[in-house]
Design a protein around this nucleic acid. Structure first.
Lengths: 131, 131
DNA sequence: CGGAATCCCGGTTGATACTG
DNA sequence: CAGTATCAACCGGGATTCCG
């Protein structure tokens, strides 16, 4: 049908406006989850821009500031500017951001526990049809 | 303290070959996680191609088959072909795939519990600098 | 120092059409 | 029914350069 109505169920994963979808779109990015982990693990809680750049190997300034801003926008990260010269900007996880690190940790744990199985499956699959 | 960085150790999130990174790259896609949930929720355990297409609103045949194949390759999904005419192909989660649904569910739960806060933060942020 | 703006390339995605 | 093939548009994201 072409059913015009499809699934209007709220909280439904199929809905583009669905919460899960929105959240996955955010943490599914290339850097988001890394940044969250780095900030979650940071001892002082706050980390400066340049330090983040150093810790998140491979990230460009553009992506760092861009990602940081999107996380800030969503209330996951806090940006604190010290009005010195030159300016020092400190980033930290908000309580909301910190709470997301839990679920993220679950995924991380799964990844570490099952990655070998995944890699093995992948190898087996590729070997079956090398083309 | 400030510290550590400088060299990516294996198993470290910063390493591009890190398990978490690989897993997030997979489930972070636009359809992967939806497919996993649909398959996980499917009562019979098996769902046919056309039925998946119907359940995952908005997906194209190309992306569906493409995503399905990548999940199959990684050992998360099983593909069973019934050699009839016309052919009937059934997809289901493997035990490995099913085990991933747990962590994914944690993320989903977080999303549903905190999405309003995220949306609010976003609105507040946008209101602060409307441009 | 932090970050905005610009340019640009390549992978990903979506329509559409064709096949077994 | 269950895909594959092709083409074109899109966009993430890297390098570079400029600014407060």
């Amino acid at each position: 049908m072409t059913t015009p109505a499809a699934h209007p169920s709220p909280g439904d994963l199929f809905d583009p406006a669905c919460p899960t979808r929105q959240v996955l779109d955010r943490i599914g990015g290339k850097w988001e989850s890394m940044l969250i982990k780095v900030l979650a693990d940071a001892e002082p809680g706050e980390v400066r821009f340049a330090e983040l750049r150093r810790r998140v190997t491979g990230i460009s300034q553009k992506m760092l500031s861009q990602t940081l801003r999107s996380l800030e926008r969503d209330g996951l990260v806090r940006r604190r500017v010290e009005p010195t010269v030159p300016p020092a900007v400190h980033y930290s996880l908000t309580p909301l951001g910190r709470s997301l690190d839990g679920p993220l940790a679950a995924v991380r744990a799964w990844a570490e526990r099952h990655i070998t199985a995944v890699v093995a499956a992948r190898a087996a699959y590729d070997e079956a049809s090398p083309s």
